[in-house]
Amino acid sequence: MTVHKGTANQLTRVLGAGSLVTVALTALFGLWLTPPDAVQGQLVRLIYVHPAAATACYVGFGLCALASLAYLWPRTRSRRWDRLAAASAEVGVVFCVITLATGSIWGRGSWGVWWTWDARLTLTALLCAVFLGYLALRRTGGNPESRALTSAIVAVVCVALVPIDHYATSWWTTLHQGDTLMRANPLIHGSQLYTMLLSFVAVGLVFSWLVVHRYRVEVLEDRFEEEGFAVAIAERRAEASAAVQDRPAESAVVGPGPAVAASSSSAGSEMGRDGEVSE
């Protein structure tokens, strides 16, 4: 077989290159070219990671909920929305963990503690736990259509935590500071502001790039889940006969016994045809 490009194409290459360039620029400005802060000193340099990651986390969960709504709405119901929900929720959880980790480190340096149970931190931890539960729910197997329906409802309910988390610093007293940018008169130095905005672009590109890749993985997993093993077995045969062995351990041919019998009964007509061709 030819070179396996995986889930990459022109779009992901552009997004990936853009991510690399903007992340590098953010690091250059954030770590070297911007001044330290009057109060926080060098610790201010975490502002070029943490808020952007938190925003990506919110966007991931928000996108998951929007896609879930689109799935629930009868006129737009399509498994594509379910796949987008799965992809964006998973990437959202990754950025949620990044938010918690960078926030904890920043907190240790500036506040003096790794963690405190104020409303913002508590709700972010809750958000992370809830969407980890959502991802677990998606792994329970069973009928894909009913899984899509259940997880869509769960996502739409759980996303209510996002606005509560965002407004926590203005609704209640918290140790966490309020918004830097979304307020009447932001007080932030010019180069710090521009670098912070650049970090949002960089993280946005990384986020989009990851969601596109993850979406395609979801498409492929859906296919394998629903079409059984016919595809994989056909490929294994083709690989063995072509003697292409980039991974000797894995390309060991599966015995044609029960797997083939099951695949011919389970696979859709097109997949069955493929299986026969390679046989």
Binding site: G141, G142, N143, P144, F224, E225, E226, E227, G228, F229, A232, I233, R236, A249, E250, A252, V253, V254, G255, G257, P258, A259, A261, A262, S263, S265, S266, A267, G268
Partner: peptide, 19 residues
Amino acid sequence: AAASAEASGAGASPGAGVP
């Protein structure tokens, strides 16, 4: 389809390496 895929996966694994 998904159910039988599961079953065949369990059936195939004791034999050769798992694809």
